[in-house]
């Protein structure tokens, strides 16, 4: 349903712009937390898995090294949950959601994300089951067809 938060994609211009800033600062020897966050924010919204994974790494680094600012820690946690959900690492994503909710249980934005991830896990799990179920049905159909033909054969031989 309303899971556009996991579907919207960063524009290539934005990604390039924040990537350039990041590399400039990296080249000059020190990347500010703001620049690293802005770049990760774009990376985890990319259409490419490799970008998302890179964004997750950068966010993990920010999270580990942030000691004072609790507000920023919650930003990192939230986007770690988003990034992991986008590459279908649902268990990890839920882990980050729960870590967040353990501190701020009433946060509706994270509750919203958690319910989307759970729903995705369910539907994608169901799809897997439906595929397996389809194979059973197809097999059942073949057996059914065989039985019908056998019956028809019996009938024909019986009417002679």
């Amino acid at each position: 349903m309303a899971d556009d938060i996991l579907n919207e994609v960063v524009s290539p211009e934005d990604l390039t712009r924040f990537e350039r800033l990041y590399h400039e600062e990296l080249h000059n020897g020190s990347v500010s937390r703001m620049t690293q966050f802005n770049y990760s924010f774009c990376l985890v919204r990319s259409e490419f898995c490799a970008d998302i994974r890179k964004g997750i790494l950068l966010l993990e680094e920010l999270f580990k090294t942030e000691t004072e600012d609790i507000d920023r820690k919650r930003d990192y946690l939230y986007y770690l949950a988003i990034g992991n959900a986008r590459i279908k690492e649902y268990t990890k994503s839920l882990k980050y959601c729960r870590a967040f909710l353990a501190i701020e249980s009433e946060n509706s934005q994270v509750q919203h994300l958690e319910s989307i991830v759970k729903k995705r896990m369910e539907t994608e799990g169901l799809k897997g089951m439906a595929l397996a179920g389809g194979a059973v049905l197809a097999l059942g159909g073949l057996i059914g067809l065989g039985l019908a033909m056998a019956k028809k054969g019996n009938k024909e031989s019986g009417s002679k």
Binding site: A2, D4, I5, E8, F41, D71, R74, D75, Y78, Y79, E104, E106, N107, S108, Q109, H112
Partner: peptide
Amino acid sequence: FMPDCPHTIGVEFGT
């Protein structure tokens, strides 16, 4: 009405 609404992180989405 959502009382004590926490600061939004980045963006949130509604429909």
